[in-house]
Amino acid sequence: MARKFFVGGNFKMNGTKESIKAIIKNLNEAQLDPNVEVVIAPSHLYLPIAVDAVTASTVSVSAQNVYAKPNGAHTGEVSVSQLKDLGLNWTITGHSERRAGGESDENVADKTKAAIDGGLSVIWCCGESLEEREAGNTVAVVEKQLAALAAKLSGNDWKKIVIAYEPIWAIGTGKVATTEQAQEVHAAIRKWLKAKVSDAVADKTRILYGGSVTAKNSKDLAKQPDIDGFLVGGASLKPEFVDIINSNQ
């Protein structure tokens, strides 16, 4: 079945009030492919500004992270209900920069389940380090991350998941997996979903590529049968983000 192309923009710890408004103004005024779902993720500080500023019908706002427990004595954290209160319907979980800071596969799965139960959709991230790739363990690492997620989800939960495969060695480095490398892992993820979850989930789940995606490489990547879009980092802060969004035309 046809899966709707999806492009996420992870602003990471970047931006000011004015720069966030300028990025969104550019998206609002651009001729975006109407067949692409776009989700931007500014810092928590700027989420209210972003929600108020977005007028483009195909653009939504996401958090970069969420806490697995309800409101309470959790200093510095942000709950699912607080994100919903702001009008958000998305969050990212499991980005490698957070996994590197100590989040385990199980932590990420708990956050993802809490987000879904609270009414959010999730861009769930997975990926391997350079050492793991060079050791030939890429698929094993990603399957382990998937298994931890699947252990917490029920069948209907998968409807709220978008998977982002991000090879850690390609994030912010300027290196990018070749189209063949990216497609190979995306196909392996879909094969795992088919074997361990269901044919329907494998067919319907969108799998994004992330890792130094630019306007120069996005068109070739978008042509791959199992690449359903992108999770974009640094380039989402630049005007070329529009070109990446439109790369599937």
Results as ranks from 00 to 15, higher is better:
residue 227 I to V: 10
residue 20 I to G: 06
residue 236 S to E: 10
residue 185 V to A: 02
residue 222 A to R: 07
residue 58 T to P: 05
residue 9 G to I: 05
residue 143 E to W: 01
residue 97 E to K: 03
residue 114 A to P: 14
residue 59 V to Q: 14
residue 170 A to D: 06
residue 134 E to C: 14
residue 46 Y to Q: 04
residue 137 N to P: 08
residue 160 K to M: 08
residue 13 M to N: 14
residue 89 N to H: 09
residue 235 A to F: 05
residue 18 E to M: 06
residue 199 D to R: 01
residue 189 I to L: 00
residue 141 V to K: 09
residue 240 E to D: 11
residue 36 V to C: 12
residue 36 V to R: 08
residue 5 F to Q: 09
residue 145 Q to M: 11
residue 162 V to S: 04
residue 111 K to A: 15
residue 237 L to F: 02
residue 6 F to T: 10
residue 147 A to F: 00
residue 206 R to Q: 12
residue 73 A to F: 02
residue 73 A to D: 05
residue 11 F to S: 06
residue 245 I to R: 02
residue 82 Q to F: 15
residue 11 F to I: 03
residue 178 T to W: 08
residue 116 I to N: 03
residue 160 K to Y: 05
residue 12 K to S: 04
residue 171 I to Q: 05
residue 23 I to K: 14
residue 240 E to A: 05
residue 39 V to K: 01
residue 10 N to K: 00
residue 70 P to N: 14
residue 188 A to L: 00
residue 233 G to C: 08
residue 30 A to I: 08
residue 167 P to V: 05
residue 236 S to M: 06
residue 53 A to D: 05
residue 236 S to N: 08
residue 148 A to N: 03
residue 67 Y to A: 07
residue 172 G to H: 07
residue 16 T to W: 00
residue 127 G to R: 10
residue 202 A to M: 00
residue 201 V to T: 09
residue 183 Q to M: 00
residue 62 S to D: 12
residue 12 K to C: 05
residue 16 T to M: 01
residue 211 G to V: 04
residue 117 D to H: 09
residue 223 K to M: 08
residue 137 N to T: 09
residue 178 T to Q: 10
residue 217 N to F: 04
residue 189 I to P: 00
residue 62 S to V: 13
residue 51 V to I: 05
residue 69 K to C: 11
residue 79 S to P: 15
residue 143 E to I: 01
residue 54 V to H: 09
residue 208 L to K: 06
residue 79 S to I: 13
residue 117 D to K: 14
residue 125 C to E: 04
residue 147 A to G: 02
residue 92 I to M: 10
residue 197 V to Y: 00
residue 76 G to K: 08
residue 240 E to F: 03
residue 70 P to M: 14
residue 218 S to R: 11
residue 122 V to Y: 07
residue 205 T to E: 11
residue 16 T to Y: 00
residue 110 D to G: 02
residue 189 I to G: 00
residue 205 T to C: 12
residue 153 L to V: 04
residue 180 E to W: 01
residue 33 D to Y: 03
residue 5 F to M: 09
residue 129 S to F: 04
residue 66 V to E: 01
residue 193 L to A: 03
residue 108 V to C: 06
